[in-house]
């Protein structure tokens, strides 16, 4: 564990609490892509199979994984059941097959061994990299977002961005790197760059999050 990864994980944790807070206080999941949230459940479910099949890493690791699994399922419940009327599928139109297809192919080609658990692990890494796209696509379509939703996205983006210095640090201290995670992580962070730019230049200056026409 190093400081970058710790702050990254805490940022990931914060993003989920911000999202839950937004849904509970506004009693609405307006502006949140159900597809992106469903992809995160898929990501966690396929990757955290290692809780069963992998080696024990640490109590921290197990608790965090259980939290991410549980909270992402709970968010789906809120969106599909409790606050269903506030969820508008007509603007959540990104085609999931464009993400699931390529990620499946990539996972079959790039994995640490051709076993179900390892292929699913690779799949989860690739899928995580692009899981935010339905959400960003929705933002693009509506052209604006509530401030709280942008804080959620910023915290989520910061999480993966912080994993980059973590990998650099680990490369120098441990002398090795994980090409699958690092390359997918770079792509994932890259997808946020546009968002980060508007977040920093507008939302953090107290303005509304609006995309240029």
């Amino acid at each position: 564990m190093n400081i970058f990864r710790l702050i990254g994980d805490l940022s990931h944790l914060a993003s989920i609490f911000i999202l839950l807070h937004k849904i509970q206080t506004t009693r609405s999941c307006r502006g949140i892509s159900f597809k992106t949230q469903a992809l995160y459940v898929t990501v966690f479910a396929t990757r955290y199979l290692d809780l069963i099949f992998g080696e024990f890493v640490s109590v921290y690791n197990v608790i965090m994984k259980l939290f991410f699994l549980g909270s992402s399922c709970y968010i789906l419940y809120l969106m599909k059941m409790k606050y269903k009327p506030t969820n508008d599928p007509s603007i959540d139109t990104f085609r999931l097959e464009y993400l699931l297809g390529p990620c499946t192919v990539l996972a079959l080609i790039f994995n640490f061994s051709f076993t179900p658990v390892e292929i699913l692990w690779s799949f989860s890494i690739f899928l995580e990299a692009v899981a935010i796209l339905p959400q960003l696509f929705m933002l693009q379509r509506t052209g604006e977002a509530e401030a709280i939703t942008t804080h959620y996205l910023a915290a989520l983006g910061a999480y993966r961005a912080l994993y980059i210095p973590n990998w650099i640090y680990r490369y120098y201290t441990e002398g090795s790197w994980d090409p699958i995670a690092v390359l997918a992580g770079l792509v994932q962070t890259g997808l946020y760059l546009d968002f980060f730019y508007i977040y920093v230049t507008k939302v953090l200056q107290g303005q509304k999050f609006e995309l240029p026409a």
Partner: peptide
């Protein structure tokens, strides 16, 4: 050198 680093990451 590469390794399966991320197995202990989240």
């Amino acid at each position: 050198q590469t390794t399966e680093h991320s197995k202990d990451e989240l």
